[in-house]
Design a protein around this nucleic acid. Structure first.
Length: 423
DNA sequence: TCTTCCATCACGT
DNA sequence: CTAACGACGTGATGGAAGA
C-alpha cells in the first residue's frame, strides 16, 4: 500500500452546458451573426411531439429560473416562460467532444474519458513539462476557448473525486483547486446533495438522520450510515465526504458489460405485432454493436415501461453465447410473450448481458451450416450498414411503413456510425 | 448454508 | 395545458432458486 501512496495531480475537465455550448459553436460557425443562445434563457431539448420532451442542456440564465437538466420541457417552460428551446444535433456534438479530447491528450497519455463532455487527466508524470498546475489548467482552458470556441471548467486536485467536485464550483470558464487541505473550507459547507454519487434517494435518507452538509456526513458515524444506506455505499460516500478516493485514472475497458438499446415510442403500443417490430429494430442495433466489438452475450433482457411509467424487465440466460440479431430477436419475443400483460407500452428496451469475447465462438459454427450462413449474412449487413448508414438495409418485415419503428432506427444512425469509427 | 440468479432501484452523463 | 417525463451504462440489494 505504501507503494501507491505517492501524491497525484489530477485534472477534471467539464464542458460548460455542453450541448448548448456546442450548439452555439455550430450556429455561429454557420452564421457569425446568429444569436448566441448562451446569452439568453435557452435549452437544448428533445422533440416533445415524439414524447422525447426533456431538457438536455440549459443556459446559465435558464438555470437562474430553476430549469434543470432532465426535466420535462413543459415544466421548464412553466418556470421560465420565455425559454428558447432548440433541437439537438448529436453528430456535431460528438465531433466537438472528440476535438477537445484530442487536444487534451497532448498533455498526458494518462487520461480517462468519463462521458461525452468530461475527462480526467492524470498530470502527475507530465506536469513538470508545463509548470504550475493552476497556470497550466488556465492555459488549457484558454486554448479550448480560443481554438474550439467553447468554455470549460477545470478542477484540480490529487484524486478524481476532488477534481470533479472542484470543476463543479463557480461556472463558466473557470479553474478551481480542491486539494485535501482545502476540503474543510471549500467542500464541507456544501449541501449533501452536491457530493458526487448522492442522488435524491440517498439525500432523503441522510436528511432524515439530520445530515445536511458534506461536512456533517464526513464527521458522522460510519456504522450509523451503514445501517441506513447499505454497507458498500455507506463506506464509499463517507470516504468521498472526507475527500478520499484512490480510484486510478485509466481508460475503461472498451468492452462493455452490457449492450442495451431502448426507445420511447412516439405513441403507446398495445398490440403484439407492433411490439415485435420494435423489438426487432432494437435487436438489430444491439446485435450490430456486439458484432462490431467482437463479443457475445449469454443473457437477454427485455425492458418495458407502460403508460403509467411502471417499469418491468425480464431476462433469460442463453445456452449458447450469441451475437446474432435473429437469436436476440427470438429470445426477446419469447420474453415479451411471457410477461407482457398487454397494457399499453410507452418504452421498450433490449439489453444483452453476460458479455464474453467471441474468440472461441467458431466451435459450434461448423456443426450448423444454417447458423453459419445466418452469421455471414449479418456480417455483410453490418458492412453495408457501416458504409451507407443504418437505414440502407431493412428487413423485409420492416418495409411495411411503420412510423413508430422508423424513428427508432433513424435516431440511432449517427451515434452508431460514430461509435463504429472510434474503434 | 452458501452461491448464483433475477428484478428492481439508484446513480451518473 | 387541466401536467405529461431520454438513453444509456454500472453497480447494489434483497429475495428466490439451486446445490
Amino acid at each position: 500500500m505504501e507503494h501507491g501512496d505517492r501524491e497525484r495531480l489530477i485534472f477534471h475537465i467539464d464542458v460548460n452546458s455542453a450541448f448548448l455550448s456546442w450548439e452555439c459553436v455550430y450556429r455561429l460557425s454557420h452564421d457569425p451573426d446568429a444569436l448566441d443562445l448562451r446569452t439568453i434563457p435557452s435549452a437544448v431539448g428533445g422533440d416533445a411531439s415524439m414524447r422525447h420532451g426533456i431538457v438536455l442542456a440549459k443556459s446559465p440564465l435558464a438555470r437562474k429560473y430553476g430549469v434543470t437538466t432532465g426535466e420535462p420541457l413543459a415544466q421548464a417552460r412553466r418556470k421560465c416562460p420565455n425559454l428558447t428551446v432548440v433541437p439537438s444535433r448529436f453528430d456535431f456534438y460528438i465531433k466537438c467532444s472528440r476535438r477537445m479530447m484530442e487536444l487534451l491528450e497532448e498533455y498526458t497519455p494518462d487520461h480517462e474519458k468519463f462521458s461525452i463532455d468530461e475527462i480526467f487527466l492524470d498530470m502527475t508524470e507530465t506536469i513538470h513539462l508545463f509548470g504550475d498546475p493552476l497556470a497550466t489548467a488556465s492555459q488549457i482552458r484558454e486554448r479550448i476557448k480560443n481554438e474550439l470556441g467553447f468554455t470549460v471548467n477545470i478542477g484540480i486536485s490529487s484524486n478524481k473525486l476532488l477534481a470533479k467536485m472542484a470543476s463543479d464550483f463557480e461556472k463558466p470558464d473557470r479553474c478551481h483547486t480542491l486539494f485535501p487541505h482545502e476540503v474543510p473550507g471549500k467542500m464541507w459547507p456544501l449541501p449533501i446533495r452536491e457530493l458526487f454519487f448522492v442522488g435524491s434517494a440517498a439525500q432523503k435518507k441522510m436528511e432524515a438522520l439530520g445530515l445536511h452538509t458534506i461536512g456533517q456526513l464526513a464527521a458522522c458515524d460510519l456504522e450509523l450510515l451503514k445501517a441506513h444506506l447499505g454497507r458498500s455505499y455507506a463506506v464509499l460516500i463517507h470516504q468521498y465526504a472526507n475527500g478520499v478516493d484512490e480510484d486510478p485514472v485509466e481508460e475503461r475497458d472498451p468492452v462493455n458489460k452490457a449492450y442495451g438499446n431502448s426507445i420511447t415510442l412516439s405513441r403507446d403500443i398495445s398490440d403484439h405485432d407492433n411490439a415485435c417490430q420494435v423489438l426487432l429494430s432494437l435487436c438489430e442495433t444491439v446485435g450490430a454493436r456486439l458484432r462490431a466489438d467482437h463479443v457475445l452475450c449469454s443473457n437477454v433482457c427485455v425492458e418495458l415501461r407502460d403508460w403509467e411509467f411502471k417499469n418491468q424487465s425480464h431476462q433469460m440466460t442463453l445456452a449458447e453465447p450469441t451475437d446474432s440479431t435473429s437469436v436476440l430477436y427470438e429470445c426477446s419475443c419469447r420474453l415479451l410473450k411471457d410477461f407482457w400483460d398487454m397494457t399499453p407500452l410507452r418504452l421498450m428496451g433490449v439489453r444483452a448481458g453476460k458479455i464474453a469475447d467471441d474468440s472461441f465462438s467458431q466451435i459450434s459454427l461448423f456443426d450448423d451450416p444454417g447458423l453459419l450462413k445466418k452469421k455471414e449474412f449479418e456480417k455483410t449487413v453490418d458492412k453495408i450498414r457501416n458504409k451507407y448508414g443504418i437505414d440502407s438495409i431493412k428487413r423485409a418485415s420492416f418495409l411495411q411503413k411503420d412510423s413508430i419503428v422508423d424513428h427508432a432506427a433513424s435516431k440511432k444512425k449517427h451515434l452508431n456510425r460514430q461509435e463504429d469509427m472510434d474503434r
